[in-house]
């Protein structure tokens, strides 16, 4: 299929979009901001017969707090998240992650739905969504299901999304007043770079430098994002002092399962995962104490 032969449909509502997705016997694919889709189309990797263009489906672009969750529409851009006061207050780790995506142009174009849809193990918003306990709503013309983000990814670029489904909502749990988070990324340069390793940490703090509960998720160190459960269980062992933080970082070195590729060797990734976690925890404690 040549690029010049690819058609495009622009549905004007979600129901029209779901209708289009339900049509069998043709190769179609959603395109939102296009920052992954257009690149892969040019590389010859993604050549659908029809692009279903959802870029301007306004009804899927929102950030709202309702009942116990923050609801995020999949067409919310990284810029929208960076500027959202609600997320700044109640999901700081996601704001920090969005800020690390590409540079201004990519943040203006790229969407959270697209970041999830691409399912790269290096996707920057993904570890943040893991530690915020994200749930994804997947909708087809005839069905709607909601599942935890952990169950969505099956490998690099692979998900449980069916041909006729799309992501219609991302639900996250707002941080409590004694909660805070951080996102740390190592890339080859400051802007516009794919993560070599990234980590999202979210802590709920108690008195006296003690952590009541914490979540840690790493990207780029396994086929999908992983939670570092052993490290997490150590967070509540006692005061988060230098000794405990260093011990947690040592366990992280063992807990991640990276491969070597063109961007870095496995050993370097282990070293950096450990260092990013250690640095992130120090920074979080400092922020907590300065609050």
């Amino acid at each position: 299929m040549l690029v010049s032969q690819i058609d495009m449909i622009t549905p004007s509502s979600l129901s029209e979009c779901l209708n289009q997705l339900s049509k069998a016997g043709r190769k179609h694919k959603l395109i939102a901001g296009g920052t992954d889709a257009a690149v892969r189309m040019k590389e010859g990797k993604w050549r659908p017969e029809i692009w279903i263009n959802i870029k301007n489906l306004k009804e899927l672009r929102y950030i709202e707090e309702r009942e116990d969750f923050i609801h995020i529409g999949p067409l919310t851009t990284h810029t929208d998240m960076i500027q959202s006061q609600l997320l700044q207050r109640k999901a700081d780790v996601l704001v920090e992650a969005a800020r690390e995506v590409g540079a201004t142009q990519m943040q203006n174009m790229g969407t959270i739905g697209g970041n999830i849809g691409t399912a790269s193990p290096a996707g920057d918003t993904l570890p943040a969504l893991y530690v915020l306990g994200a749930m994804l709503e997947l909708t087809s013309l005839t069905n709607k299901r909601t599942l935890p983000i952990e169950e969505f990814f099956t490998g690099p670029g692979r998900t449980v999304l069916k041909e006729n489904e799309m992501i219609t909502k991302i639900l996250i749990k707002p941080q409590k007043p004694n909660g805070l988070g951080i996102f740390q990324k190592l890339g080859p340069r400051k802007a516009q770079s794919i993560s070599i390793v990234n980590v999202a940490i979210s802590l709920t703090m108690d008195n006296d430098r003690k952590c009541a509960e914490g979540k840690i998720a790493f990207g780029s160190v396994a086929p999908t994002i992983i939670r570092a459960r052993k490290c997490e269980s150590m967070l509540t062992l006692g005061q988060l002092n230098e000794e405990l933080i260093q011990n947690i970082a040592k366990i992280a070195w063992k807990e991640v399962m990276p491969i070597s590729d063109g961007r870095a060797t496995a050993t370097y990734r282990r070293d950096m995962a450990s260092a990013l976690l250690e640095r992130g925890l120090y920074r979080l404690i400092r922020r907590w104490e300065n609050q």
Binding site: A38, W51, M106, M109
Partner: peptide
């Protein structure tokens, strides 16, 4: 009014 890369925007969009 938002800056984007026109090499990644498709004409139909």
């Amino acid at each position: 009014k938002e800056v984007v890369c026109s090499c990644l925007v498709l004409a139909g969009q």
